[in-house]
Design a binder for these strands. Structure first.
Lengths: 152, 152
DNA sequence: CTAGGTGCTAGACCGCGCTCTAGGTCAACG
DNA sequence: CGTTGACCTAGAGCGCGGTCTAGCACCTAG
């Protein structure tokens, strides 16, 4: 079998993580890896299976808005080995909360956007030349919806 | 009653939209408003009720990741008046899709994060000095979960 | 031996969306 | 009238996260 060699060049890692080689080098420089990266005789980076998995995690962290600095901190903690799990937990919990908040915020925005979409669908369906409201509407508070489009 | 004067200085608008005066000026420069802003005799910006509502919308658009350029485009369409509803609709639909995709992506990330949180909660609960997995785990594919923490 | 492909470092550059500064104008108040 | 505070413009600066370049080393194949 011998499935994976468990050693990868930067190019190979780029291929399987989807990160560019530039970004991979950046991440190493910025301390996002959980330990010192091995180097080949010629000074080339040698990634292990573990690094690739870790980088996949990093990608998710990034995609969920975690700043590089936070990932670095987490990497430090992991790199230090057992004993600091509470701190890792705290960090992850805080991030989870931010992600949840963000999702909630997006849902909130989505409501507005959807209401606009619905309104315009209606408008377009019944002949686009009818009487239309302008975009600001469906807003909170006064002046509920119908609002002339021409102004100033 | 005479609730709102329907005319606001930039400072007042900043207060009620939560945007800074700098940002408000930027938005005007960048064409995010749906028309030419009125100016007082002394050349000062005069915002109407409408502008404030529109800016509130802009804030939501921004919060949901819409680039300034897209908001500008929408503002242009609205500023042009009736007749281009189909295009506005298209733009809004596209954005709605992006927001939905983004929410889905965040949920996906949240799954990973939550699994980590759960794992660490477990670890911390049963005495933080036990046998622990490292952070990369719960990943897709080979090497499911238990993974030693020490390496290199 | 040479060429091509891949990798290395250091450091410049970029896009985005603000945020701030300098230097001036304007309006109202005492 | 002078002062104060809000406002004006033009333009610089910034934080973030990449992205790219220059110039060089390495290594394998032909």
């Amino acid at each position: 079998m011998l499935d994976t060699p468990a050693e990868f060049s930067i190019g190979q890692v780029a291929e399987r993580t989807g990160l560019s080689v530039h970004t991979l080098r950046l991440y190493e420089r910025e301390g996002l890896l959980t330990g010192r990266l091995r180097r080949s005789s010629g000074g080339r980076r040698v990634y292990g299976e573990w690094d690739v998995q870790w980088l996949d995690n990093c990608t998710k962290f990034r995609a969920s808005g975690m700043p590089l600095a936070t990932i670095r901190r987490l990497a430090e903690l992991v790199g230090e080995g057992p004993g600091n799990e509470a701190e890792r937990l705290e960090l992850l919990r805080a991030h989870r909360q931010r992600v949840r908040d963000r999702i909630a915020e997006l849902h909130d925005c989505l409501d507005l956007i959807s209401s606009k979409v619905t309104a315009y669908e209606e408008a377009v369906r019944q002949g686009t030349a009818d009487r239309l409201w302008s975009t600001p509407s469906t807003g909170p508070g006064t002046d509920p919806d119908p609002e002339p489009d021409e102004r100033r």
